[in-house]
Structures are given as structure tokens and as C-alpha cells.
């Protein structure tokens, strides 16, 4: 036992550092989750009291008056998101297919890179672009221009999700289809994309959820509206815009409505994601891998 050797026991300082680091990591995890729980708690506590029939069916009252609701904003958000999905989902899936099935080259790398760049462009900048591309030529704010802005924002998320999911489809599956004499386009759509569908749909929903609450790009595209509007070429209210306007207003009743609107918005986002999760998992065949 007297031969010189490495220390037999882990030193006190090393143990102390280890314990300290562990404590810090645990504390960080807790500290990050506290705001999340706080935000959800406040949304429910402050919002639920103001969600009533009038809130869901009426349009806003003039400033300072008590009552009214956000019916037009809920519908407006629906319209804008529909336009956004019509633009963003096909283009996103299309470019995702390109990246996965054709994009093993310089141009593919360029598109992949641009998609990532587009993903990082601040939403307010996309708003400016949609303003000058759609609002200025049309000469007025519109639901359509808001949809364009949000649609553009959906593309990179959908594209990268589609690419990733398609790359996860084993090549042997494609070979099986080619081996049956199925052309490439058919193989891609009916075999590869179908195999990857659950992931692609999840990606689309994430993109959808991400833009559903977007406000900045709508400020000068959809613009907001105190009244009903179902036309694509007219200024339209949106939940997120309404929450913003009410939150920075000086009226107590509007503050309450802002919380209610925020609650509806988050329920919409979480609900949309959950709904798709459930339907895709139910539609899947049992025993599938």
C-alpha cells in the first residue's frame, strides 16, 4: 500500500464542483419552467373570466365602452391562416421534396441555406416586404397580404421538416417501389411522402402554430378592423392584433378582453396541434413501426 499511486479518493473540491454543477443544472431546469407555468396559469386565471358568449359572438365596442367581443378577430385569424396555409404548405412540401429527393447538389445546398436564412428573418421584416409587395400595389391593407406574410414564414419550417422526414424514409423503400416499375414522381408522392406523412403533417402543424400567434407582420398587412370583414381584399381583424391593441390600451375592460383573447389564441394553437396529433395517430395502422 505504500507504493506511490494516483489519489485513491476523489478530492473534496472535485466533489464539491460536481455537486455545484448538478445543482445549477437542476436549478436552471426549474427556473426555465417557472415562467412557462406562470404564463399558462395567468392566461387561464385572468382569461377564463372574460370568455363568454358575447366575447365569442360580438364585435368590439367603441373605446372605453364595456362589453363586446372578438368574434370578428377569431374569424379573421381563421381567414388569414387559411390563406397562409394555402401558400406555405404546398411550397414548403415542394421544396422539402426537392431538398430530399433531388437536392444533393450545389443548388440544393443553396436552397437549404436560404430556407434557414428565411427562417431567421425577423417577422417584422417579412411584414415590410409583404406590405410593399402586396399592400402598395393593391393600395389598401388586406387579409390576403397578411396571409402572404404568414405563408412566407411557414415555408422554411415546412420545407425542412419535409426534407428531414423524407430522409428518414429508408432508401430500400424507394428501391422497392422502383423495383415494381413505379415512376419516380409516383414513388415520391405515394410511397416516400406517404411513409413520412405523420412527420410532415407534424411539421406543417408546427409551422402553423408558429405563425398563428404572429402579430408583427400583420400590423401593416391585415391591419386590424373593428368590424366584420370576410373579404380577402379588405383590412381584417386578427386575434393577435386585437390582443396587442387591447393590452396597450388604457381601459380595464379591454385588458380583461386581451387576456381572454390570448387564452383563445393559445387554445387555438395547442388545440390545432393536438387535433392533428390525434387524427394522425388514430389513422396509423396498428403495429406499424
Amino acid at each position: 500500500m505504500s507504493a506511490p499511486s494516483a489519489p485513491q479518493q476523489v478530492g473534496l473540491i472535485r466533489r464539491f464542483t460536481n455537486a455545484g454543477a448538478t445543482t445549477f443544472a437542476v436549478a436552471a431546469a426549474i427556473l426555465v419552467l417557472v415562467p412557462l407555468l406562470a404564463i399558462f396559469a395567468y392566461l387561464v386565471i385572468k382569461g377564463i373570466g372574460s370568455v363568454n358568449w358575447a366575447f365569442l359572438t360580438q364585435t368590439p365596442k367603441p373605446p372605453g365602452e364595456v362589453g363586446g367581443g372578438m368574434a370578428n378577430a377569431i374569424v379573421g385569424t381563421g381567414i388569414i391562416l387559411a390563406v397562409a396555409s394555402v401558400i406555405g404548405v404546398p411550397l414548403g412540401i415542394g421544396s422539402g421534396i426537392y431538398l430530399a429527393e433531388y437536392g444533393r447538389n450545389r443548388f440544393g445546398d443553396l436552397v437549404r441555406f436560404t430556407a434557414d436564412v428565411l427562417n431567421g428573418v425577423p417577422s417584422i421584416v417579412i411584414g415590410i416586404a409583404a406590405y410593399s409587395l402586396v399592400v402598395v400595389p393593391q393600395k389598401h391593407f388586406s387579409a390576403f397580404s397578411g396571409g402572404v406574410a404568414l405563408g412566407i414564414m411557414m415555408i422554411p419550417t415546412v420545407a425542412r421538416a419535409t426534407e428531414e422526414m423524407l430522409l428518414m424514409v429508408p432508401n430500400v423503400i424507394r428501391e422497392a417501389a422502383y423495383g415494381l416499375g413505379i415512376p419516380k414522381w409516383r414513388t415520391t408522392l405515394s410511397i416516400s411522402l406517404r411513409t413520412a406523412s405523420a412527420g410532415v403533417i407534424t411539421g406543417c402543424m408546427l409551422a402553423f402554430a408558429r405563425v398563428a400567434g404572429e402579430t408583427a407582420p400583420l400590423l401593416f398587412t391585415a391591419f386590424g378592423n373593428q368590424f366584420w370583414n370576410l373579404k380577402l381584399n379588405q383590412p381584417t381583424a386578427a386575434l393577435s392584433l386585437q390582443v396587442f391593441t387591447y393590452a396597450i390600451s388604457p381601459y380595464d375592460d379591454w385588458h380583461k378582453q386581451a387576456w381572454a383573447g390570448a387564452l383563445i389564441l393559445i387554445v387555438l394553437i395547442v388545440g390545432a396541434v393536438a387535433a392533428v396529433r390525434i387524427t394522425t395517430s388514430r389513422g396509423m395502422l396498428k403495429g406499424g413501426s
Binding site: 421544396s95 429527393e101 415512376p183
Partner: peptide, 27 residues
């Protein structure tokens, strides 16, 4: 159909690139 499909897919990939260029140009 295979080449038609390839062209459609390529166009949507180009659109991503074009959008970024267009945004930059407008700004």
C-alpha cells in the same frame, strides 16, 4: 410525368430562393 414533376418541385425550391431575393430587393 416524371420530368413535369421534377420541374414543379424545382420551381417550388426556386421560390424559396426567389422570396429571399425579393424581400432583399424590396427593402
Amino acid at each position: 410525368p416524371d420530368s413535369v414533376f421534377a420541374v414543379i418541385i424545382l420551381l417550388s425550391a426556386i421560390s424559396v430562393f426567389a422570396i429571399v431575393v425579393l424581400v432583399a430587393w424590396e427593402l
